[in-house]
Each structure stands twice: as C-alpha cells, then as structure tokens.
C-alpha cells in the first residue's frame, strides 16, 4: 500500500462523498454556501486525520469486543475539541455551522476509516489516509457549496469573512437564484449530478 494509491483512493477512486456515500447528513445540510462548506469540510478533515492517528496509535491495545465503542469515544472526543476550538477562534462561524459540527460524530466516514483502515495499519499511513479521505470530502463539499450558492442565491463567498477575518468578500453574480437548488432537495439533485459526472469521467477514462 503506497501513499500514491491512498491519495488516489481518498480523492477520487473511493471518495467518501461520491463513491462511499458516507457522511451525507453534514454534506447535504451545510453545502448551501461556500463558507459553511469550507468551515465544516475543514473541521471534518482535521477530526478525521486526528482520529485516524490516535486509533492507529492504540491499535494493539484494543480487544475485538470493545474496539468499536472505543473508536467512537475517540472520534467524539475530537469532535468536542473541534467544537470548543471553533467557539474559541471563530465564534460567528460557529453560530452558523455549530449544529452540524456535533453531527460529525455520526459521519460514517470517520468510523469507517477508523475501523477499515486505521485499526489495521501503521500510524503514518493511517494519518495520511485520514488526510486524503478528509481532503476528498472537503473538495466535494466545496464544489457543492460553490454550485449551490451560485445557482441558488446568485452569490459566492457570502459570509466567508467570518472564517478569514477579512472584510466582506461576497461576489454578487445574479440578483436572485433558482430557489430549488438552495433548498434541501437541491442538495440531493446536485450530489446526484456530481456522482453522474464522476461516472461519465470514469467511463471515458476506461
């Protein structure tokens, strides 16, 4: 197992959002703007990398019967830490995505990677796997956030200054948007289109 194949897996071939279809709840809920996508995607990336690292570190220590609850415990601890850090550094952003940060615990990408990879592989590989899977998730989330914000609201980068601390950098592209894209069903439709696009590309490559 090489780093390159891990990167390929996480970013494209086995992408958690487009192929494994894991973690749909936060993916669909926070992808209505670029800023919230970036906030939740980065948080997930950090938590996934840290939890993979820790679970790989303790992999010799755990029994079969108690492995899963301990993994959830580790993930929940990191999510709570991330939640506190967001409130500490990015309070305004936390007001918008706070509800979904707690839901990262239930994002099956994390438990999936912990159980399928980190509990069986050495520390460096596991950490890298977490980083790549997290990046794959973040990129899909950002793509969906961009599409849905432009098509649904006619803006881009609204509220992004809450994360970066710079002046407002909203780009007004149109006066209003196609409402359906901004509503929850729009998230499913957008994700469906992205999966279809990926399959078309895969087909063309083969």
């Amino acid at each position: 197992m090489t780093a390159i194949s891990l990167a390929k897996d996480g970013l494209w071939k086995n992408n958690p959002a487009l192929v494994q279809l894991l973690g749909l709840c936060p993916l669909l809920a926070t992808s209505n703007s670029f800023a919230t996508s970036l906030g939740l995607g980065l948080t997930t990336l950090v938590v996934l990398t840290l939890s993979n690292f820790t679970i790989s570190l303790m992999r010799g220590l755990l029994d079969d019967e108690t492995r899963l609850p301990v993994q959830i415990l580790v993930i929940a601890t990191f999510v709570t830490l991330a939640d506190l850090s967001l409130q500490y550094w990015f309070f305004d952003m936390h007001q918008r995505i706070g509800l979904f940060v707690a839901l990262i615990v239930t994002n099956c990408t994390l438990l999936g990677r912990a159980e399928a990879f980190a509990s069986k592989n050495p520390i460096i590989l596991s950490t890298f796997d977490g980083l790549m899977m997290g990046t794959g998730f973040l990129l899909v989330l950002l793509l969906m956030g961009t599409i849905r914000e432009i098509a649904g609201n006619g803006t881009l980068f609204a509220n992004l200054h809450l994360l970066t601390g710079t002046p407002d950098m909203t780009i007004q592209i149109a006066d209003s948007g196609f409402l359906l894209v901004a509503l929850p069903p729009g998230a499913f439709l957008t994700l469906g289109c992205l999966i279809a696009a990926k399959n078309v590309i895969d087909g063309a490559l083969r």
Binding site: L61, T66, V70, L73, A76, T80, L81, L84
Partner: peptide, 21 residues
C-alpha cells in the same frame, strides 16, 4: 478496565480544554 480508563482520560482531557476555553 481498558475502555474505562480510556473514557476517563478522554473526559479529563475534555474537562481540561473546557476549563481553558
């Protein structure tokens, strides 16, 4: 014992962070 100790250390770690933040 093992998960119990782990849970306790996690709780301690979080309580510590909570106090700081």
């Amino acid at each position: 014992l093992k998960p119990t100790l782990l849970a306790l250390s996690c709780a301690f770690f979080l309580a510590f962070t909570h106090q700081i933040t």
